[in-house]
Nucleic acid binder design. Structure first.
Length: 594
RNA sequence: GGGGGCGUAGCUCAGCUUGGUUAGAGCACUGGACUGUCACUCCAGAGGUCGCGGGUUCGAGCCCCGUCGCUCCCGCCA
């Protein structure tokens, strides 16, 4: 079936934006939106737009009736019209190479306005270089904003990536299984969106933050391989790349180890990138969490540039400089980044970089640069003659942070990113994937001493760590992993704890102490694990973010049809909203001060 | 929860530094002219709660206080 047949309906025979030179001579009827009109007096042009693009419709006295010309001359932009006429090749002089349909036009004999439009509140057709309307207006008049070709292209790409995901996973035996939207509140993690129960006064459902426990239950049930394009909800403050409801490609498989999941994940990313006309490596480099923190100061390093962090502690141990001395004596390290070419930076420029390090918690940056072969800076007199500083080449600036890794890693991460930008080292075209493995199992709160799960409480630790250091859980590595691209987390997952005894021990370590409490909060999972659970694990990808990256959209809002504002409002449909008191009463709710 | 930016015609913006006659421009819109344009061109016109509230002042788009909305960032996001 040709596409002409595919899109042929009772009201139109083809899509306007798909017309090409091969269609010349066809009698067509078209339906679409009036993008723009040009009335030259004796001839009227209408740019007719549909999802495939724009075609020029011409109304001339030689082929169109006076009524048709008058209708074309007076139709308002964004009105919906039906047009019939003949596709003709344009003269060489009047072809438009900028349009897909530019080799042809439709000589129209009739035009009917079937959906007249008021003047649009925000423009759909824009002149070259004309800015978009304010975000607020684009969201309020979303039905107009979504008429624009680039937003339509984003959502079309989104559709294709969804289908590619389904194809890839289905071909590998993964079953698309659905999980509840009305589910059980979870006390840890992000805040839940709560839904009051009418039939059970005072009780609430929660919208899922992820289908985590359900997908583990599928494994326990024996479905073997599961996936879901899952809508997830988190009631936290928003960002350009964070929405209160978002979509994950959620995956789980049984009888697997970490490498099984990771090679599947590499295949899926490869399939998605291919669908978008890009490429991703078949095998992505791996780095351990410890290594990433040591070399880049972050668990999602941007590998498009070097500027690795190096450890200078042993060098500074031999130097009588107070700041480094006391940091080392306190058990800290001196780490730094060598920046080739940055010796020429002004005092002010380095101060700006230092301000970022300070905002990340560092006391400051120690500066040392080599100009004309000589070291300069407050450290210079201590560093002179120390061979290790030969690693700072002429014209380079070295920036050091002294102290504990908990402070210096995030500070050096910021410094590294900022300096890469300032030195022009970041290639927009580069795509550097990396898989970070061996996250720590727990994070210990430095003030309260309490343990919290770095990934989530269902993640399995390395068995050898548990055996070797049974009393030092904060040193256990987890079988958890993240897929990172250019410093952005695309997804993450873990091998789960399938042993109920171990799972109960994890809860105890997390302070979910007694059996009764564990039962109340996670009883259904523990019970299910006791019923016979296969080894299993999985991963989840942030789908909206992937669409954003592959479409080049500047915001998540540009790849979600009806997004929320940063205040979590829906401006078009006006949600959230107050509800009548009787509706609240039926839900056994009463408002406080609001 | 905290910090920065923005808010003037339907849309995009100027005007605010240094308060002063009737608040301007481009696009869109309305009317007119035009037979090959494609951001058509040309002529004319209409269009304003300067986000909202309060204050200072003889006088506020402009200064001050508060507030609302959008946005970016920090916290937060197992």
């Amino acid at each position: 079936m040709s596409t002409g047949d595919l899109y042929s309906t009772a009201l139109r025979s083809a899509r306007a934006g798909a017309l090409r030179a091969a269609d010349a001579g066809r009698e067509v009827s078209l339906g679409g939106w009036v993008h723009r009109t040009r009335n030259l007096g004796g001839i009227v042009f209408v740019d007719l737009r549909d999802i495939d693009g724009i075609a020029q419709i011409s109304f001339g006295t030689d082929w169109a009736s006076a009524e048709a010309i008058a209708a074309a001359a007076s139709v308002g932009v964004e009105s919906v019209v039906l047009v019939s006429g003949t596709v003709v090749l344009r003269d060489a002089a009047t072809k438009n190479p900028e349009m897909g349909t530019g080799d042809v036009e439709v000589r129209a004999t009739a035009l009917a306005v079937v959906g007249p439009a008021v003047t649009p509140a925000i423009p759909v057709a824009r002149g070259r270089g004309e800015k978009l309307a304010a975000e607020e207006l684009r969201l309020k008049y979303r039905y107009l904003d979504l008429r624009r070709a680039d937003l339509q292209a984003n959502l079309v790409l989104r559709h294709r990536l969804l289908q590619a995901s389904r194809r890839f996973l289905t071909d590998r035996g993964y079953l698309e299984l659905e999980t509840p939207i009305l589910t059980k509140p979870t006390p840890e993690g992000a805040r839940d969106y709560l839904v009051p129960s009418r039939v059970h006064p005072g009780e609430f459902y929660a919208l899922p933050q992820s289908p985590q426990i359900y997908k583990q239950l599928f494994m326990i049930c024996g479905f073997d391989r599961y996936f879901q394009i899952a809508r997830c909800f988190r009631d936290e403050d928003l960002r350009a790349d964070r929405q209160p409801e978002f979509t994950q490609i959620d995956i789980e498989a049984s009888f697997v180890e970490q490498d099984d999941i990771l090679s599947m994940a590499e295949g899926l990313i490869g399939a998605l990138w291919l669908e978008a006309g890009a490429a991703a490596p078949a095998v992505m480099p791996r780095i351990t969490y410890a290594d990433a923190m040591d070399r880049y100061g972050t668990d999602r390093p941007d590998l498009r540039y070097g500027l690795e962090i190096s450890d200078w502690t042993s060098v500074f141990e031999g130097i009588a400089f107070n700041i480094t001395r006391s940091a080392i004596d306190a058990g800290g390290r001196v780490r730094g980044i060598v920046l080739p070419g940055a010796a020429a930076w002004s005092r002010k420029q380095v101060d700006d970089v230092e301000a970022l390090a300070k905002s990340a918690g560092a006391g400051g940056l120690l500066r040392l640069k080599r100009v004309g072969g000589k070291l300069e800076g407050p450290l210079a007199k201590f560093a002179d003659g120390v061979g290790a500083f030969d690693a700072i080449p002429d014209g380079a600036l070295a920036l050091f942070v002294a102290g504990g890794d908990r402070i210096s890693s995030p500070a050096l991460d910021r410094v590294r990113q900022e300096c890469a930008t300032r030195l022009g080292l970041i290639s927009e075209a580069a795509q550097c994937f990396v898989i970070v493995t061996d996250f720590p199992m727990f994070d210990r709160d430095p003030e309260t001493g309490a343990l919290s799960a770095v990934h989530h409480p269902f993640t399995a630790p390395h068995a050898e760590d548990v055996a070797r250091m049974p009393d030092a859980p904060e040193r256990w590595r987890a079988l958890a992993y993240d897929v990172v691209l250019n410093g952005t987390e695309l997804g993450g997952g873990s091998i789960r704890t399938s042993d109920p005894v171990m799972q109960a021990r994890m809860f105890t370590l997390l302070g979910i102490g007694d059996a009764e409490e564990q039962d109340r909060r996670f009883g259904f999972l523990l019970e299910a694990l006791r019923a016979g659970a296969p080894p299993h694990g999985g991963i989840a990808f942030g789908f909206d973010r992937i669409v954003m990256l592959l479409s080049g959209a500047p915001s998540l809002r540009d790849v979600i049809a009806f997004p929320k504002t940063t205040a979590a409002r829906a401006l078009f449909e006006q949600a959230p909203t107050r509800v009548p008191a009787e509706d609240l009463a039926e839900l056994h709710l009463r408002l406080g001060d609001a």
